[in-house]
Write a protein that binds this DNA or RNA. Sequence first.
DNA 1: AATCGTTACGTGATGCGTAACGATG
DNA 2: CATCGTTACGCATCACGTAACGATT
Lengths: 102, 102
Amino acid sequence: MADEQDHRYLSLRDQSATIPLQHLRYAVVSAEYGSFRRAAEALLTQQSTLSRGIRELEESIGVIVFERSSGGVCATSAGRDFLRTARSILEQMDALVTYSQV
Amino acid sequence: MADEQDHRYLSLRDQSATIPLQHLRYAVVSAEYGSFRRAAEALLTQQSTLSRGIRELEESIGVIVFERSSGGVCATSAGRDFLRTARSILEQMDALVTYSQV
DNA sequence: AATCGTTACGTGATGCGTAACGATG
DNA sequence: CATCGTTACGCATCACGTAACGATT
């Protein structure tokens, strides 16, 4: 019960886990603001929700994306790589929804 | 109540709707198999679940992705464009989860 | 002591499975 | 008439909001 990783994202059996896109957005916006609280405001949600979301995200990929402090958050170097792909995914998803087709 | 579109995917207020990645996978695999039933089998889920998922997906983007028939399904031309981006998104997500970083 | 992030807890929403139905070759 | 897709219904799960807590400057 210590370092156990609960597989929250394994919706399908063994064929590729997925991270909720909302969690990706949480991370991207948090990086932009350097703050969970600000990001939560911007996304019209609760900071507890955002905090949990990012925690789950980090557990699922086994990478710490943000360095926490009382002054806010800052992306780690591994986190920066993660965020680049996350942005790309979100952009493609936006295109998919907005234009119906690329 | 006729041609109303229920905004199932608008999880955030107005800042970009998202399509559950699972629904993207439903569509991609269905296209590969040419059949909802087969795709559901392959994805270890129910064909009713898959059918609903794709229906919701199509309503959310306002595009019919599949042509249904008693013999199975076939992607429309608009659907093919959609599926190309969907595959790309899923690939990037897999990379994100598998390698933790790109 | 004020601000920021974390955690606990209860509830409302919703996605899913079971099952019945419709349609088409 | 057999096979495939659709729809109805009920339930279990889970994500969220409220609220209390810990820590750092």
